[in-house]
Structure formats: C-alpha cells, structure tokens
C-alpha cells in the first residue's frame, strides 16, 4: 500500500517576527492607490449622503439658497484684509457645522488635507527669501548676498514679521473658505445639489450635468472591477511600461464604453419621448427659514465689512 508522508515544510512552521512581516509587506502600487482612491471617494460620497440626511440647520435650507448664500459669504470673505474679520467667518462656519450635526472629527478630516498642503506650500513664505520685511529670527548666515537670475538671496536667512503674518493670513483664509464651501457638499443631498445646479443652467446643459453625475459612479464601479480583475490574475511585479499600458487601455475602454452607453441611453430616452427639449422639475420651495437665513447672511457680511473697512 502506498503511504504518503504528510509533512509540513519547515519554512511554513517557522514563526515570523512582526518586523519580518513588516518587511515583506508589498509596497502600495498604482492599482492599489487607484482602488483606494476610488473606494474612498465612493465611501465619502455615501457618508456625505448620510450627513446630508440628518435633521440639522443647514440641511433645512433650500439647496439654491444655501449654495448662493454660502458663495456670497466666501466672496465677502475674499475681500477681507483683517485676520480678526476672517476669524469671525471661521467661527460662524464652526457654529453652522455644530448646528448641522456634523461630527467635529469629520470636519477636521475633510479640511485637513487641503490645510496641510497649504501649510506645507506656504511655510517658505515666512522667510525673507520670499517676503522681505523685518527679521524676527535669523536661521543662518551665508558668506555674502547672492543674485541668481531673478532671485536675490540675502546674506542672513531669517523669518520676517511680514512673512509670518502672510503665511498665517493665507492659511486662515483658505481654512475659512473651505470650511464654508464644504458645508454645501456636506449638508445637501447630491441629487438635490445636481438639481439645484441644473435649475440654474440652460438646456441641454442642465440635462448633461444630471446624467454626468449619475454615470460617474457607474464608471467608477467599472474601474474598481478592472483593478480587482488585474489584481486577481497578476503575480509578481508588472513593469512601469506595462502598468502605463494597462492604465491607458482602461481609459480607452472607459471611453468606448461611455460611447456605447450614450447610444443606448439616447435610445432609452427617445423611447420615453425625449426630443431634445429639457425641463428641470422644480421641487424646491423657499420657506421663511430660507429668508431669515439669507437676511442674516447679508446683515452679518455688511456689519463685518463696515466694522473692519474703517
């Protein structure tokens, strides 16, 4: 009788330390990055939809009134030159987040990427290499002044008072603007926002916006499926050229698919009576709350402009 000796090979029994396991973790490739990007986008949109369904203050404002009033506040904010005035807009936005029942962690998570990038980009402006002014702290000294093309480098590299103020001002302005702008996306259901944008556009562009929004998710789903298929049938590393070819082939495929879908979609629309004319059904109603909110925005902006322009 044939006896099969079942032995587990030693390399399989060998215990690996966490450090060894960490070393063997493959580096995140282009496919993983795209997949992460796509999934976090879809997850973020679904999460935003959940937030926009909450019974908070901004969620009750009519989408067009909300978008126009918040854009108005951002425009007024862009005219301000005093950090204290901009801070009042930031405080207003934080109050609106709290009354709209948006978790503070979500607020920070949404704002952090742009704010961190702005901090990173703007920090060199605190030096006299970028913004000339009164030196407050000398970092190091060179042997002499240098002029290289259009760039003048002073002997003493220092942080300047004007530079620091400029960096703080830019960061405060960007943070406050994004804080207000993000309220539109977070407190409005995407479908309502699409409808609000569409209602402000002439035909057939209103229809283009609403179809476009719906198909973004459809195409993203195809991207996700393509990446999963690639991952499931690949072993080892694909060359950079091979990866680029794959990305290009997926983009080409997506365009071909979009083309085919647009033909099918037209046939479906035609079958339902579409002849080229479009009409957005206005489901929005202006309430007393919308009027009170709009008046508040106007008074708030006027008071700040009057108070801080003198």
């Amino acid at each position: 009788m044939l006896q099969i000796k079942m032995e587990i090979p030693e390399w399989l029994i060998e215990r690996q330390t966490p450090a060894q396991l960490a070393v063997r973790q493959p580096k995140e490739g282009f496919a993983d990055k795209t997949l992460r990007h796509v999934l976090s986008f879809i997850k973020g949109t679904l999460f935003n939809e959940g937030i926009s369904s909450k019974k908070g203050f901004m969620q009750h404002i009519e989408p067009r009134v909300k978008a126009l009033s918040l854009i108005g506040l951002i425009v007024v904010l862009s005219f301000l030159k005093d950090a204290r005035a901009i801070s009042l807009f930031l405080v207003l936005s934080i109050i609106l987040y709290l009354y709209s029942r948006i978790p503070i962690m979500l607020y920070l998570k949404k704002l952090m990427p742009v704010v961190l990038v702005t901090i990173f980009i703007s920090l060199p402006a605190a030096l006299n290499l970028i913004v000339k002014g009164d030196a407050v702290f000398t970092l190091f000294s060179l042997s002499r002044d240098y002029t290289i093309g259009p760039w003048y480098i002073q002997k003493e590299i220092a942080l300047t008072r004007q530079g620091i103020h400029s960096v703080l001002m830019l960061n405060l302005r960007v943070l406050t603007s994004i804080s207000l702008a993000m309220l539109i996306a977070l407190t409005t259901k995407p479908e309502s926002m699409v409808k609000a944008i569409s209602s402000l556009l002439p035909g057939p562009f209103n229809l283009i916006v609403s179809i476009s929004y719906r198909y973004i998710f459809f195409l993203l789903k195809r991207v996700e499926q393509s990446i999963m298929a690639l991952k499931s049938r690949s072993l080892g590393r694909i060359s950079t050229k091979g990866q680029q070819r794959w990305v290009a082939s997926r983009m080409g495929f997506l365009f071909s698919l979009s083309y085919r879908l647009s033909e099918d979609l037209y046939k479906a629309m035609e079958a339902r009576g579409y002849k080229g004319e479009t009409k957005v059904i206005d489901i929005f109603r202006i309430t007393a709350m919308d009027i009170i909110w709009s008046v508040f925005c106007i008074i708030f902006s006027a008071v700040i402009l009057w108070k801080f322009s003198s």
Binding site: I208, V209, S258, E263, E270
Partner: peptide, 16 residues
C-alpha cells in the same frame, strides 16, 4: 439630441 448623452458621459469620463 442624440449627442447630449455622449457629452454627459464624456464629462463623467473626464471626472473618472
């Protein structure tokens, strides 16, 4: 009229 869906899908394609 037939090209309206194409333009919409192309906009979604640009996004993706």
């Amino acid at each position: 009229a037939a090209q309206v869906p194409l333009l919409a899908l192309s906009s979604a394609f640009s996004f993706v």
